[in-house]
Design a protein around this nucleic acid. Structure first.
Length: 595
RNA sequence: GCUGACGUGGCUCAAUGGUAGAGCAAGUGAUUUGUAAUCACUAGGUUGGAGGUUCGAUUCCUCUCGUCAGCUCCA
């Protein structure tokens, strides 16, 4: 996201100004609103804006027309946005008289020079104040000149948000809206949101019969036959790739004694988020695994390793359970039961760069196949909170950065965001609603080798500690498939389509030939369905199109006589008749894909 | 977990305190069809669950489960 306060970014200013107008309008909803609506912050964000506030009663979307009415009045008045600087005490008094506790807190923060991350007013001598009409707000700006510039806006949704993002503090109401320079831009944005909603994986998952959810197991997918096909194809292709790239597959238990989680550190940090298993006495002495790494540590440790064995790469498609908070569950993107393409590499420090190079190669092969646009975040050491040798960290971070550069991967640096046990790379893709979804993650770990006392024998006979690389390239298959559903809007490429071809007969007279075509395709491994119902051909086509089937074969008298098929493709429509054998070859070829 | 909204046949949605409806899907029958919906009939709901208010609750209230939008979290 661009810096919100760049004066050259007109849209940012426009949205920020619209947020002020909205805050004013919400105040008009309540008697003595200037005092009873306690404003927090109201910044522009990508495409939208919001304002956080404490209100006498919850705002609901039903309030939007009324709020918008007041906004329009303010906009029509064409009041200028005017800035002033107030001395701290003046500002404290003014906002104090109006019980604006959040603004007072911000003013204190500004005078203590603590505030930097907010967009509220900062100045040497005092605080920056903006007026528009009867509305006055603590704000650094910048704003547009006149309220009339904010004509093209719409309020979108309302939600809760904690003051200063702290779940121990007050929960405020956040109202989101969007604002644009022209009516056409606004309309285009609203249309884009509607289009995006149509490819929501939860909607398509139901319509295409891919998966379902049930209250009996919240946050865990039931994969229906078509979805299970996609799931299995994907995991098979990924597995095949890794096996040819130096990984060995393992399978490990679901349930482990708590001692393992104590060793790994999970018991301390994540016990509340794990599904616990009780013993006969009712004590929680073991737990379902939330990740595979501790199991892999045990495997590594079970034999003595030589430097000649390294890098030692193991891969696991084990089922994981995480007891995610109820409010966070969302479709397939945030689930309680998941399975990752999870691998761990035990490596000498000198080989870290080389391993990263290989992992990025895998990443590019998989993401390249799907043509998925991604973003990479590189999280580096938090100087306050890290374990291990600072020299090792520095070397590792330099190495990772070099690898990113050498592979021409664009990344953004997140200084201080790494976990305490090692730097990490996160790859994010955008979902259909423009939200970032984390998929691939590659993480260096100096901690687990320590906790599990892992060693290898170096060439000079000394015992050394390996480094562990955690890597998941698809991430969880659940989330990855959710993203693929949205990326393709359900129209999967042929090799991944649960049904690749529907053979449809013009009438019952051609069922024999239709059946022959179906069976031939099936014999060649094509996922084919015969539609010999007695509906019209138009209806059959409509059915298949709604299911996003890549190929439709129309079988009638002409085709039967010449032993051809009339082919209709999902993308190109009717592409005419083709010899049966030619089509079979085409299907076999299209269905064949390796990463 | 927090704030708010929502929950009506498989799906999409009506019904605002007075006998729960429609379209699609399903079943049956008719039709035998040439590139996005053939026609008719039939069946399907104790309105997520529990409690309460009321002569009467899909509708109002409480609790609970789930879903959604965000927030916090995401090993």
């Amino acid at each position: 996201m661009p810096e919100p306060n760049q004066p050259e970014d007109y849209l940012q200013r426009l949205r920020h100004s619209t947020a002020h107008i909205m805050a004013y309008a919400v105040q008009q909803l309540f008697p003595d609103g200037e005092r009873t609506v306690k404003l927090a912050i109201g910044p522009p964000i990508e495409n939208e804006f919001y304002y956080d506030m404490e209100v006498p009663r919850p705002i609901t979307p039903e309030d939007f027309p009324e709020i918008e009415k007041h906004m329009k009045a303010m906009i029509r008045s064409n009041a200028p946005f005017e800035q002033e600087t107030w001395a701290y005490d003046d500002a404290r008094q003014w906002f104090g008289e109006r019980d604006q506790k959040f603004k007072l807190e911000l003013i204190d923060g500004i005078s203590d020079r603590e505030v930097s991350a907010t967009d509220e007013g900062v100045d040497e001598e005092g605080v920056s104040i903006y007026h528009n009409g009867d509305f006055t707000d603590l704000c650094k700006g910048p704003h547009v000149e006149k309220t009339s510039e904010c004509r093209y806006f719409k309020l979108l949704r309302v939600s809760g948000a904690y003051w200063r993002g702290d779940s121990n503090r007050e929960q405020l109401q956040r109202i989101y809206g969007t604002a644009w320079e022209t009516k056409a831009d606004l309309q285009a944005y609203l249309t884009q949101r509607e289009e995006a909603a149509k490819r929501d994986h939860r909607k398509l998952g139901r319509e295409l019969e891919l998966f379902q959810m049930h209250p009996e197991s919240p946050g865990s997918a039931f994969w229906l036959p078509k979805g299970a096909l996609i799931y299995n194809i994907l995991s098979e292709k990924v597995r095949k790739l890794y096996l040819t790239e130096g990984y060995q597959e393992v399978r490990t238990p679901l349930i482990y004694d708590s001692s393992l989680w104590e060793t790994s550190g999970h018991w301390e940090h994540f016990k509340d988020d794990m599904f616990l298993v009780e013993n006969e006495e009712g004590e929680a002495t073991s737990a379902l695994k939330p990740m595979n790494c501790p199991a892999h540590m045990l495997i590594y440790k079970s034999v003595r390793h030589s430097y000649r064995d390294l890098p030692y790469r193991i891969y696991d498609q084990g089922v994981l359970h995480r007891n995610e908070a109820t409010g966070t569950l969302t479709g397939l993107s945030r689930v309680r039961q998941l399975c990752q393409d999870d691998g761990h590499i035990f490596v000498e420090e000198k080989d870290i760069a080389n391993e990263y190079e290989r992992i990025l190669g895998l990443f590019q092969r998989i993401y390249g196949t799907f043509d998925l646009p991604f973003r990479c975040d590189f999280s580096t050491r938090n100087p306050e909170k890290f374990m291990g040798d600072i020299e090792v960290w520095n070397r590792a971070e330099t190495l990772l950065e070099d690898v990113l550069k050498n592979n021409q991967i664009e990344y953004s640096l997140d200084p201080g965001e790494a976990a305490f046990y090692g730097p990490k790379l996160d790859f994010q893709v955008r979902d259909s609603l423009n939200r970032d979804v984390q998929c691939a993650t590659v993480q260096l770990d100096f901690q687990l080798p320590e906790r599990f006392d892992l060693t290898y024998v170096a060439s000079d006979g000394s015992e050394k500690r390996p480094v562990v690389i955690h890597r998941a390239i698809c991430g969880s298959f659940e989330r990855f498939i959710a993203m693929l559903i949205e990326h393709y809007a359900g129209a999967f490429p042929t090799w991944l389509s649960p049904v690749q071809c529907v053979v449809m007969t013009i009438s019952q007279r051609f069922v024999d030939y239709g059946t022959e075509v179906e069976q031939l395709l099936a014999q060649k491994g094509c996922r084919v369905v015969l539609d010999n119902s007695d509906g019209k051909i138009g209806a059959k086509i409509r059915q298949a199109r709604l299911q996003r089937v890549p190929y439709m074969l129309i079988i009638g008298g002409r085709e039967q006589e010449s032993r051809t098929v009339s082919v209709r493709s999902r993308e190109e429509g009717n592409i005419g008749a083709m010899a049966l054998d030619t089509f079979v070859d085409k299907m076999v070829q299209e269905a064949d894909l390796d990463f």
